[in-house]
Design a protein around this nucleic acid. Structure first.
Length: 442
RNA sequence: CGGGGAGUAGCGCAGUCUGGUAGCGCAUCUGUUUUGGGAACAGAGGGUCGCAGGUUCGAAUCCUGUCUCCCCGACCA
């Protein structure tokens, strides 16, 4: 992308309302604009990152055998009355009345809708298991939205729902999502730790929250230190028994404050491995059995000729929250440091003498080659007033920068900077191209 | 929902106590000179001071109401 053809409104000064790093940097890097409390427009740069995260989540869901669909944002009240949650959900649910006086709501989650889809079309145990998901906007009228997109009222969530014949099989589905989540967060450049969690209003007794550690996290967490640096499983056969992979994590102590038991913590974890920190919840999985299938009469015929309530699970990843979460985990005092997998552009090309024939030619050549190689460069082709140069390039946090100026070019040399380490090296133009493509090949 | 703070130019703010018709920095536009880690100089444009009432000869400023946003807490798939 050429900067001259892009929309990238960078802010020099930090808006007063932003308290934490991710919020400040998202505003300053021109990623979002607040519309009202907890509601944001996603500007091109922010939307690009959001889309990249959603695509990684989508790919990992597909690998685990989940099937994508799309459910509406606006739902009717009737299904929620059936499940009993129309009254239970309280003021967090945004309720709307249409012109005919019908009661509608902006969906805070989708158990009801999908259970209704399921009971309409699935009649036999032979059609099970089913695991379906969508990536859709949700609205929860939080009492106090804050921290930018980390706790917004409108937010993008990936929510998956599984349906099985019995509880043992439901746990198999649960384990698939458990393992899939480990891989998903790893690809996003995060160290996410699964922790025993309270099931809250969802119900059931099997539940884990996935948290990334960050000082600004809203949850207080306690876990075995070895869990933090444990590698994700990587390539796994999702049709195989995943219980051992799950047990490897769940056998170690890891709980959020609401589930924390200081006595058990001390008993199970040696003192030098006890980690208490703050965390950001980026995923939450539940196995809640027949709570909704029973309330909404979602049954399938079993091999025994009798009807059985489907045993369900639901699995959420906060896609929009992850944008903030990744920044919280990956930034320094200069700005964002994107992991390569979600960076809005792979490399920034800084032409510090726009209009100089040699500089323009060298930049155009690099821009074309890098584009063709799929690195997706952002080429600052604006004159040095108003361009994305140097510190502003650091702010938006692309993994690499290539600086092209007339002085070095006398010997065909450009400067390549690694955003994360800050290391700069002077390379020939071709060598710079090769260096960058190698970094992304790994 | 309880407590606290704030709404004045695109952004960040001063001015409000003590009423007299709005200002600074950045950004934007024009011109000139520049060019290696956020260019300089000169000039220009841009605001019914959140909204509605009231007091007054006169309100950003005083009074009443109201809306919005932010922070702390409680809450939270």
């Amino acid at each position: 992308m050429r900067l001259s053809q892009y929309f990238l409104p960078l802010l020099k000064e930090t808006p007063a309302s932003a308290e934490i790093a991710s919020h400040r940097y998202m505003l300053r890097a021109g990623m979002i604009k607040q519309h009202s409390a907890g509601i944001y427009s996603w500007l091109p740069l922010g939307y690009k990152v959001l889309t990249k995260i959603a695509n990684i989540v989508r790919e990992e869901q597909n690998k685990a055998g989940a099937v994508e669909m799309l459910m509406p944002t606006i739902q009717g009240a009737d299904l929620w009355r059936e499940s009993g949650r129309y009254d239970d959900y309280g003021k967090e649910m945004l309720r709307i009345t249409d012109r005919g006086g019908r009661e509608l709501l902006y969906g805070p989650t989708n158990e009801e809708i999908l259970t209704d889809v399921f009971r309409t079309f699935i009649r036999s145990y032979k059609d099970l298991p089913q695991t379906l998901y969508h990536i859709q906007w949700k609205f929860r009228d939080e009492v106090r939205p804050r921290f930018g997109v980390m706790r917004g009222r409108e937010f993008l969530m990936k929510d998956t729902y599984s349906f099985d014949m019995d509880m043992d099989l439901a746990v198999v589905s649960y384990n698939k999502m458990f393992v899939s989540y480990l891989n998903t967060f790893e690809r996003l450049g995060l160290k996410a730790v699964p922790m025993r969690a309270d099931t809250g209003p969802i119900g059931g007794d099997l539940s884990h929250e996935f948290l990334i550690l960050a000082d600004t996290g809203e949850s207080e967490v306690f876990c075995h230190a070895d869990l933090v640096n444990m590698d994700a499983p990587g390539k796994v056969d999702f049709d195989s028994d995943l219980q051992a992979l799950v047990d490897k994590r769940t056998s170690m102590y890891a709980r959020t404050d609401e589930m924390h038991d200081e006595g058990v913590f001390h008993k199970e974890v040696p003192e030098d491995k006890r980690l208490s920190a703050r965390g950001i919840e980026v995923g939450h999985i539940f196995c809640f059995g027949d709570k909704y299938s029973k309330a909404m009469d979602a049954k399938v015929m079993g091999p025994d000729g009798k009807e059985h309530f489907a045993q369900m699970g639901s699995y959420g990843i906060g896609v929009s929250r992850l944008v903030g979460g990744i920044i919280e985990a990956c930034h320094d005092d200069k700005g964002i440091i994107w992991p390569k997998s979600v960076a809005p552009f792979g490399v920034g090309i800084i032409n510090i003498r726009v209009g100089d024939e040699a500089c323009d030619t060298a930049c155009e050549s690099l821009y074309a080659k890098l584009s063709r190689a799929g690195i997706d460069p952002l080429y600052d082709d604006k004159s040095d007033r108003g361009g994305v140069k140097f510190s502003r390039m650091d702010l938006i946090g692309l993994p690499y920068q290539i600086v092209v100026g007339p002085r070095g070019l006398k010997d065909g040399i450009v400067e390549v900077k690694d955003r994360k380490t800050g290391e700069r090296q002077e390379l020939g133009s071709d060598a710079a191209f090769e260096f960058i493509t190698e970094q992304f090949a790994n």
